[in-house]
Simulated scan of single mutants.
Amino acid sequence: MLTSWDEQAERTVRIGMLLPWANVAVEGELPRLGLVHTVFHYTRLVPASRTTAVDAAFWHGLRSAVAGGLDALSPVPLDVVFLACTSAGFPTGLAPPALPPAVLTAFDALTGVLTHLGVRRIVLATPYPHTVTAAEAAALAAYGIETTAHTSLGLADGFPAVAAGQIRTLVQHLPPAALRTADAVVLSCTGWHTLPVLAELQQELGVPVFSSTLAMALYAARLAMGEPL
């Protein structure tokens, strides 16, 4: 799908990527997806707490740092800017700072792609704490996307260290009935390395498998086609 959309591009687009300061997965995976008509421009956001674990302080600090990231990217003519953090799109706890209208989160890309493709039932796998995963399922429901089953590693930090085998095992332990009836499998979070398992899981399960990083790439490809989501 991604290659097909990229081949239909009408122009080259430039995408700003605001990365959580400890994220090492996005920069490694996006170039390997092979988009010809998309250029990604990166900068890093350091939350005031200088922490990396997903919690209210991290989300608040990350969203507060967006203005500085936009300033760093301001010389570049960008078509869209992503805050490349999925959980920052559905933070729990106290209301976080609002994002500028021009900034989307990885969660926005995910919901945009799933909605465009008519995906209504998913199974969800994340590295997050279980409460954060449940919050994401609730946030997806607000977009008309039902999470029929979800599972998580229960981690608040250390996502880059999650091995491909752990992701495979996590998905394989989802209820078989939920996997059979799902329109798609979602591997949420930009911080873990999902690219090594996407094609393998899709072939094994017989349904599309989306990651947060893949969703941002698909969103960019639609922009290049002149058909934004």
Rank of each mutant, 00 (worst) to 15 (best):
Y42F: 15
L45N: 05
P47V: 06
A25Y: 00
T43Y: 06
T43W: 08
E7G: 13
P31V: 10
L45V: 04
L62D: 08
E29S: 09
V54H: 07
V24Y: 00
A25P: 00
M17P: 01
E7M: 12
L45S: 06
T52D: 10
R11K: 14
A25H: 01
G61S: 09
I15F: 03
T38R: 03
R50W: 06
R32H: 09
T38S: 11
L35N: 02
P47Y: 04
H37Y: 08
W21I: 05
H41M: 04
A53P: 02
A22Y: 12
G16C: 11
Y42A: 12
T12L: 11
H37E: 08
G34F: 07
H41N: 12
A53N: 10
T52N: 11
M17D: 01
L33V: 02
H41E: 10
L18H: 10
V13R: 01
V39T: 15
V36Y: 01
R11G: 06
N23L: 02
W21H: 15
M17T: 04
N23C: 04
D55P: 06
L62H: 06
N23Q: 06
L18A: 11
G16D: 07
A53G: 12
G28S: 11
E7P: 00
W59S: 13
W59D: 12
W21P: 00
M17R: 04
M17W: 01
T43I: 09
V39I: 13
A22Q: 14
V36L: 10
H60K: 12
G28Y: 08
A25R: 07
G61H: 05
V26M: 08
V13C: 05
L35K: 03
T12E: 14
A57N: 12
G61T: 06
A57S: 15
M17F: 00
A57Y: 03
G28A: 14
Y42E: 10
H60F: 11
R32D: 11
L45K: 06
T12P: 01
R44D: 05
V46Q: 13
S49E: 12
V36G: 00
A22W: 12
W21C: 10
E29T: 02
T43H: 09
G16P: 08
R14S: 12
L35P: 01
M17Q: 11
T51D: 13
V36E: 12
V46N: 13
A25C: 13
T43M: 10
N23I: 02
M17Y: 02
T38F: 00
G28P: 00
R44W: 02
R14K: 15
E29W: 04
R14H: 14
N23S: 07
L18K: 10
G34I: 07
